[in-house]
């Protein structure tokens, strides 16, 4: 029983932390720049493909990860300078349309370059098995993912809460006009945040690649989850993104693990097996609706 609870908790944590990598960049872009970026998931997908390609070329997962993340950050820079910079001042409709177009383009481009079938990315051989501590088993690679996620979360906390740049970022999220009036180079700040967000996307894509599959369309499903996270957490808040990610990760994992069993104890077997998976798959949306009902601005609204 301890094994089960501990293992599920770690699973929830792992899922939540990876969501956080995606949500962190997204929430800042939304919060500071007031810009809807549907193509955030595409950066995640492209990042995963670049990591896979680099890992194959270098025959090393870690070199591949570093190269892929750097390349995606560079792509983010190019996108920001050529496209997004023009979108910030535009209305939401243009932003949605332009980034939806980006999704179409990047999905097809990936299909053209890497084909329609999923690309394989394998974890380093040393991490392909389980780690055993006193009879407790957990996949070694997932532990590494958790460690990476925690490290990034810690780093982000230090950056945002303690550094000068972080202060500007928070100021930008809370009141953009005032920040500009104080003479801070918001343009440069935007570029920095966007590139950082792109790098985090690629990191998540590269780390999850070996666990999941590197395939066209992988960005869209995860994008919606990242949206749910930042709606729950409050747009523009890193703290909100972290809390939201962990809530979503845990609720989703526990829902899948416990709901079928719970329902079976209370309902007839047939109804339980019909209702269980359905309920588990919409649990986080129900949670979101519940939170919105009481706190329409999310748990940690960046703007008072």
């Amino acid at each position: 029983m301890t094994q089960l609870i501990l293992e599920q908790a770690l699973n929830g944590l792992q899922f939540g932390l990876m969501l956080f990598l995606l949500a962190a960049g997204l929430t800042l872009v939304f919060g500071i720049m007031d810009c809807i970026n549907l193509a955030h998931g595409s950066l995640y997908m492209i990042g995963a493909y670049l990591v896979a390609a680099a890992a194959q070329a270098a025959d090393s997962f870690w070199i591949g990860l570093a190269t892929g993340v750097a390349a995606t950050a560079l792509l983010g820079l190019v996108l920001e300078l050529t496209l997004f910079r023009q979108l910030y001042k535009r209305d939401h409709l243009s932003q949605v349309l332009a980034t939806f177009a980006l999704i179409l383009i990047s999905n097809e481009a990936v299909r053209l370059i890497w084909g329609a079938q999923p690309v394989m990315l394998n974890p380093p051989a040393a991490l392909s098995g389980p780690l055993e501590v006193g009879g407790f088993f957990y996949p070694a690679y997932r532990l590494v993912i958790i460690a990476c996620g925690l490290a990034v979360a810690g780093l982000l906390y230090l950056l945002v809460a303690k550094s000068r740049i972080g202060m500007w970022v928070r100021a930008g999220a809370a009141n953009r006009e005032m920040t500009e009036a104080l003479g801070i180079n918001v343009q440069g700040l935007f570029t920095l945040v966007f590139v950082f967000g792109a790098a985090l996307c690629a990191l998540a894509g590269g780390l999850l690649g070996p666990l999941l599959a590197v395939q066209v369309g992988m960005g869209e499903s995860v994008l919606i989850l990242a949206f749910v996270v930042i709606i729950i957490g409050g747009i523009g808040s890193i703290r909100g993104a972290l809390v939201g990610s962990l809530i979503v990760g845990t609720v989703d994992t526990l829902g899948r693990a416990l709901l079928p069993t719970l329902l079976r104890a209370t309902l007839p077997a047939d109804a339980a097996s019909t209702l269980g998976p359905a309920l588990a798959s919409i649990l986080i949306y129900l949670l979101m609706a519940g939170i919105l009902f009481f706190k329409p601005q999310g748990l940690f609204p960046a703007r008072a």
Partner: peptide, 13 residues
């Protein structure tokens, strides 16, 4: 889809 995407981008920009 690439063509459609580029068309949409052009419309927006």
């Amino acid at each position: 889809h690439i063509g459609l995407g580029l068309l949409l981008l052009t419309i927006v920009l």
